[in-house]
Amino acid sequence: MAEKLGILGRKLGMTRIFGGDGAAVAVTVIEAGPCPVTQVKSEAKDGYNALQIAFVKAKAKHVTKAMQGHFAKADDGLYRHTREIRLAGAPEHKPGDALTVEMFAPGDVVKVTGTSVGKGYQGRMRRWNFAGSKDSHGCEKVHRNNGSVGNNTFPGHVFKGRKMAGHWGNETVTEMGLLIVGVRPQDNVILVRGSVPGPKNGLVLVRKQ
């Protein structure tokens, strides 16, 4: 599936700025790029058009031999993170080119993809916002229970997708329709109105919509 060109970054946290009308705006600060192009794929050779970009310099001891050879083709050092972005048309970049925050401007609408904060194993009430049983006389030790989940002899199994206790968070989440309110090329920073998925220092991908 083709995507618009984007850039890798890390979420530094949230703050607020004041607009021209004096209104306070909550923003997320993202340190994005520079992201070198480490591989270019074309439809003629690979069957589809794509760019592979990298982020965060790494030491040789933290990179496998295979990836060291891969990065050597771009001749731009070793990196910790890579991401492939499929493109609709032929790529205009070549290995070694760098993508920076200057590809964005205030007023651009973007979508940000990250990994949500993991909250471990949670019960059904916290995970699915269930109300629980009545806390009255006669309801003994069942206030937070899951209740009946099974069936009779037919079909004799729990249906897939039933809301039960389980692992919560740590999922890939894309937040759509976020507005860029500031770009600071000297710091490799962009300011996005609103919140984005993930914890502080979490890896995110910022793309134009």
Score class of each variant (00 low, 15 high):
residue 171 E to G: 02
residue 163 K to P: 01
residue 166 G to E: 05
residue 189 V to S: 05
residue 186 Q to M: 13
residue 158 V to C: 01
residue 189 V to I: 15
residue 187 D to P: 07
residue 175 E to N: 12
residue 159 F to N: 06
residue 179 L to G: 04
residue 149 V to W: 00
residue 159 F to M: 10
residue 199 P to A: 10
residue 147 G to L: 12
residue 154 F to H: 10
residue 193 R to V: 05
residue 187 D to C: 09
residue 195 S to R: 15
residue 173 V to N: 03
residue 172 T to Q: 11
residue 188 N to Y: 03
residue 170 N to C: 11
residue 185 P to H: 12
residue 147 G to E: 13
residue 168 W to H: 06
residue 192 V to T: 09
residue 190 I to H: 01
residue 177 G to S: 15
residue 172 T to V: 15
residue 188 N to G: 03
residue 174 T to Y: 11
residue 168 W to S: 04
residue 159 F to W: 06
residue 188 N to V: 05
residue 168 W to V: 02
residue 171 E to Y: 04
residue 178 L to Y: 08
residue 169 G to D: 01
residue 142 V to M: 09
residue 164 M to G: 02
residue 196 V to I: 14
residue 145 N to H: 10
residue 189 V to G: 05
residue 151 N to Y: 11
residue 171 E to M: 13
residue 180 I to V: 15
residue 141 K to R: 08
residue 170 N to R: 14
residue 197 P to Q: 04
residue 164 M to H: 03
residue 186 Q to K: 15
residue 197 P to L: 05
residue 148 S to P: 01
residue 173 V to A: 02
residue 170 N to T: 14
residue 200 K to R: 11
residue 143 H to T: 06
residue 185 P to M: 14
residue 147 G to H: 10
residue 185 P to E: 11
residue 190 I to W: 01
residue 145 N to T: 10
residue 146 N to K: 04
residue 193 R to I: 05
residue 169 G to L: 03
residue 162 R to V: 10
residue 154 F to A: 06
residue 188 N to I: 04
residue 160 K to V: 11
residue 176 M to Y: 13
residue 167 H to Q: 11
residue 141 K to L: 05
residue 192 V to Q: 07
residue 181 V to P: 02
residue 192 V to Y: 06
residue 195 S to D: 13
residue 169 G to Y: 01
residue 156 G to I: 09
residue 167 H to K: 07
residue 146 N to L: 13
residue 185 P to W: 12
residue 141 K to P: 00
residue 192 V to F: 05
residue 143 H to M: 02
residue 170 N to Q: 14
residue 183 V to W: 08
residue 180 I to A: 03
residue 194 G to P: 06
residue 187 D to Q: 14
residue 182 G to W: 07
residue 182 G to M: 06
residue 153 T to E: 12
residue 179 L to N: 14
residue 153 T to P: 02
residue 175 E to F: 11
residue 145 N to M: 13
residue 159 F to Y: 05
residue 172 T to G: 00
residue 184 R to D: 13
residue 192 V to M: 06
residue 160 K to T: 12
residue 190 I to P: 00
residue 182 G to Y: 08
residue 164 M to E: 02
residue 153 T to C: 07
residue 148 S to W: 03
residue 151 N to E: 10
residue 168 W to C: 03
residue 159 F to T: 13
residue 200 K to C: 02
residue 153 T to R: 14
residue 161 G to C: 09
residue 199 P to V: 10
residue 164 M to Q: 05
